[in-house]
Design a protein around this nucleic acid. Structure first.
Lengths: 357, 357
DNA sequence: ACGCTTTCTGAAAACGTTTTCAAACTATCC
DNA sequence: GGATAGTTTGAAAACGTTTTCAGAAAGCGT
């Protein structure tokens, strides 16, 4: 007997001498089935190595059991923990994960939208607003990451405390290290995180009666090369500054590099701080002072809200994840030996430090 | 007229006054259709905002247009470029990407295997050998990443030149820096990359008539914490060594940290080298000497081989990606200003350096 | 005009599940 | 003992495409 085609539910039914409906029921546990029959079915499935055909289930049940993830691009140290959180949470909730990086928005629309996914996780800038409108118009489950919905659509959002985080950083630079001319390196065009961080930056300046100086703003693109170039530009233009708040940790690297190359000492001459606390931040030298964003948690939380939506429940309109100041050395602090030891041996919080000036 | 349910191909057919078969044909371009009819169909699709239902297509056509990616876990700096390459290549080839991290192998089997995916990309250790056997037994398209198939099954493999890379590194440590007692930090249990790197390590020692000493082998787990602990263990045990070949860059970080904490200077006292050249490697201090693995390329190549297989063509049994020695400072070399400059301003190759001893 | 290809087209049969509906049993209660 | 309520069950109808098959229309050489 040639094992020609993979077994279907009908084969299982025949083999167990029940109807296909019964097989389906033990498969899904939708309706009780007599124990002996159920056992026969399970045995048959095992023997035939039956694997349900996903497409058929989807077609019949109208549930895809899949969630889609839309991203503008996969890159940076930021991405990995994020995906890890999303994948783990999706898995736990019983969903598959379809990943789409949308250099070209068009194709994404066709494949992930509506019919082919039970819900969508959408990262900043990865979908055009009109498409968002369309999906939202028929209540398709969506959760936005790091992006407030356009036109105040009521789509749930997961974001981090950018403004507060930035303000903590700037306050520290001003209050502890006496910095007053602090450069801010913006992130990519239209990136919301960057906008909020700038807002925190400005508010912190204002709270200390330091006038905002637009010469101190440059574009670092959340990218090491771009930040490098930006700082070189500032230096070449003769702009005077004593600290750099890089848009994120990647940009901080570029900034430090440019400063060192130009002969400036970081931090005694110029402080540099980042944002995110990606894994390598603590290993730079000087170790990077930054703000810790709970990236993996953001991913998990996004899935949690999305599953609520998919279950027909109500999701929180806005989930703002707490950020936490992480003092290391690049701001000018000297981390005490014990604190360093503590950070090094466990990945725990690091709050104890000594001021250097 | 209440817009109750999403439009189907039948609605489009009615709207354009053709049969559903014709709609299907213009959708897929399988058979020529008269221009005017085709236009009517396209118009109707546009007006009705028709989106083909993936599940129905899959069911009818028996092609899922999806490839699955199986990983043991999502983590480390290594992962991001890899996924980037895979996603991009899959996208270009017209496939969707389903990502599964397989802490629990069972579920993965059900959802990704055979029927629900056109092909599978399988990363080291993420699938049990018997399952591999089963899939292979009916010619299911599979490509293995960083893992030689068990029992010499003829499943295509993408791997990197681990042995040569490791040997280059060790040769450099011996020949240029006169190191002779070189620690090797193994990766996770059963990780093939680690095995090959160790082989390169041993061969390089042998080529220089240095006897292999098992005391110099420890387990670093491709992980910064584990490597940290391993080096501390070695130090505590009073093992004498003058260099550390960490299993990968993450482990190198941990090693450097442990050494510094114990008061050893890296590199004058002890050289440390890594493997992979993840993005942050150049930013450590001392900047990490390592071997560059073309991670993103590995991902792209894997997809390329897999698509061949899925098209029924023959794939290359083994694709070995070249690795490249990247000399920086942690081995003891002093990168010249111009070389550093070059590396810093472009991400290009960095081969020029000065020896320090 | 007449057959003979060639090109397009529509009806209808898959594809493999879930779900609805009603029927067939089994208890349970008076 | 009979009626009623509650379980389990199977037949058959979706689900929305692709694909096969045969027929209609159109071109073309004579």
């Amino acid at each position: 007997m040639p094992k020609s085609r993979p077994p279907t539910i009908a084969d299982v039914a025949r083999h167990a001498d029940v109807s296909i409906a019964t097989v389906s029921r033990v498969l899904n546990g939708t309706t009780p089935v007599q124990e002996d029959k159920a056992d026969r079915v399970r045995l048959a499935m095992e023997e035939l190595q039956f694997v349900p055909r996903h497409a058929a289930r989807v077609l019949a049940s109208k549930r895809t059991n899949t969630i889609g993830l839309l991203l503008p691009e996969i890159s940076g140290a930021f991405f990995s923990p994020m995906l890890k959180g999303i994948e783990a949470a999706a898995h736990e909730a019983g969903y598959d994960l379809l990943v789409h990086s949308t250099q070209q928005v068009k194709t994404a629309r066709r494949k992930l939208g509506e019919q082919n996914t039970d819900g969508l996780l959408i990262f900043t800038n990865s979908l055009a607003p009109e498409e968002l409108h369309r999906l939202h118009s028929f209540n398709f489950p969506i959760v936005l990451l790091h992006q407030i919905p356009p036109d105040s659509l009521d789509i749930p959002v997961i974001a981090i405390e950018n403004k507060d985080g930035a303000a903590m950083l700037i306050n520290h630079l001003i209050e502890v290290h006496g910095r007053r001319r602090i450069v801010y390196l913006r992130g990519p065009e239209g990136h919301e995180d960057s906008v909020w961080r700038e807002r925190g930056y400005r508010e912190a300046l204002e709270a200390h009666s330091i006038e905002f100086d637009s010469h101190l703003i440059a574009s670092g693109g959340f990218d090491d090369e771009e930040a490098f170039a930006a700082i070189q530009g500032l230096l070449a233009a003769g702009i005077d500054f004593d600290a750099v708040f890089a848009g994120d940790d990647d940009a901080a690297i570029g900034a430090m590099r440019a400063l060192k190359l130009a002969g400036h000492r970081v931090p005694p001459d110029i402080s540099v701080v980042g944002f995110d606390d990606v894994p390598f931040a603590r290993y730079l030298s000087p170790a990077l002072t930054t703000v810790r964003a709970p990236i993996e948690q953001v991913g998990r939380e996004a899935v949690r809200q999305l599953t609520r939506l998919m279950d027909g429940d109500h999701a929180d309109a806005l989930t703002l994840m707490r950020t936490e100041l992480v003092i290391r050395e690049s701001c000018g602090c000297q981390v005490s030996a014990s604190a360093a030891q503590k950070e090094f041996s466990s990945a725990g919080g690091e709050t104890s430090y000594n001021e250097s000036r």
